[in-house]
Nucleic acid binder design. Structure first.
Lengths: 236, 236
DNA sequence: CGATTTGTTGACTAATATCAAACTGTGTGG
DNA sequence: CCACACAGTTTGATATTAGTCAACAAATCG
């Protein structure tokens, strides 16, 4: 049920009436299984559908002229990482699976019809894109002002927070199938340096990242090192 | 005419009928003169109005726990830098004037009424916030993957492009009243390093930044150094 | 099981930060 | 009109962080 996922997600941030929920439930969608590390929406595409991550993880990224890739955001189940394609003609970035994923696709015209009939849903979707933007702002702060350890700590603290909101993180660990090289691409660091920072966190008893899981040993310290403050996630 | 400015701006990215434009014209607003370097919307505020920059420049910024300030975006006349406050309860950043500025404030309830009556306007505003987010994504790429000279070049190329869209930049120069220390805060660099990069650009005949103006000597080279590609600005 | 990807280590280098001092230009009050 | 103050810029010296390269080890996959 892709729309069940959407409903659950939208309800984290917005009031969705049962009526609205029923309207969402009849949205037609197509589900695809996408293997890991597959670009499933391309920069420069003219999207005609929006996707909902049903299981697994995806990320947004851009590749520069000289071949460096920057990861812009991570998306667990429930996220709609190309909702902005509804109003912008072209994708300005790629969407790639981190792990094997199930992804639902909904045609724009169906979403547009729904928004027209039910402005509340339109507002809820708009809000999702605004929270997205707020997360981008926070990433700018991380890259612009924080040291390598603080960047990693902040990223992990953010993921933990977002994942537990949708029930995907236990208190002290969560699944996150990422390589150090990919972490490096998200943090604007080299993979060697990421490796060293992770090691220092292991030694210091802050966290461990291994075999597709993040294990949190000392959340308070993590939050402190990363300067993490959840305000920017705008949860109700 | 704050709303005249809004109309002109919205028409860059969206179709606004004359009917819609008339409806925008009757939006009540309050105009304030704000001196330079004044925080006029604060992080953590619960905004009840949106602002439109009528003249001068403003910027968004966040300050970290250890006192470093990161500038997130620059806003020339025509911009509505707290449009997201319409749907998000709290500001997650500050809004500050760079120069003396005239700023118009419009109560949320008026905008909300207008959106309800005229969904096209709602869509145009949503689109504005999406372009905003696209610019944030690009800034993440700059901070994460580019060298100091490339970051500065990209910022200048972006500003030139955005300013000429609203008629605020000549071919080879534009007003931009910023100090090197502030540039440093936007680029995630130290002010000393920004100074050295600017000097190297002067010597190389790429650009000059002095006395509140940016003078472009070789735009092609500038665009190249910064890896600037306007796609992400999503102009129609 | 071999092949490939991912993680780890060390040595070395490059980019950028930091600190402190001096310099420049502009505006202000006497 | 000068002296001074102030903000912004410039310079040099030095420190630090993070990047690069190359080799190797460990894990994972078919």
């Amino acid at each position: 049920m892709p729309t069940e996922m959407m409903i659950r997600r939208l309800r984290i941030n917005s009031d969705i009436s049962d009526d609205d929920a029923s309207a969402l439930r009849v949205l037609p969608s197509l589900i695809r299984e996408v293997p890991e590390e597959t670009v499933f929406v391309h920069e420069n595409d003219r999207p005609t559908q929006c996707c909902v991550i049903m299981s697994g993880f995806a990320f947004r990224s851009k590749t520069t002229e000289d071949g460096k890739r920057q990861i812009l955001s991570f998306h667990p189940a429930g996220d709609m990482p190309d909702l902005h394609g509804l109003l912008l003609e072209r994708m300005d970035h790629d969407l790639t699976t981190l792990s094997d994923a199930r992804i639902a696709f909904v045609e724009h015209r169906h979403i547009n019809k729904l928004i027209e009939a039910r402005p509340t849903i339109g507002r809820a979707l708009w809000r999702e894109t605004l929270v997205d933007a707020a997360i981008f702002r926070q990433w700018i702060v991380n890259l612009g002002t924080r040291s390598a350890p603080a960047r990693l700590a902040h990223l992990v603290a953010e993921l933990r927070h977002r994942l537990s909101s949708v029930g995907l993180a236990a208190d002290d660990e969560f699944e996150f199938p990422i390589t150090q090289a990919e972490l490096a691409e998200a943090l604007g660091l080299s993979s060697v340096h990421v490796n060293r920072v992770i090691q220092s966190f292991r030694v210091a008893g802050v966290l461990d990242i291994a075999r597709n899981r993040v294990r949190l040993k000392d959340i308070e310290r993590l939050v402190n090192i990363g300067g993490f403050n959840e305000l920017y996630l705008h949860e109700q």
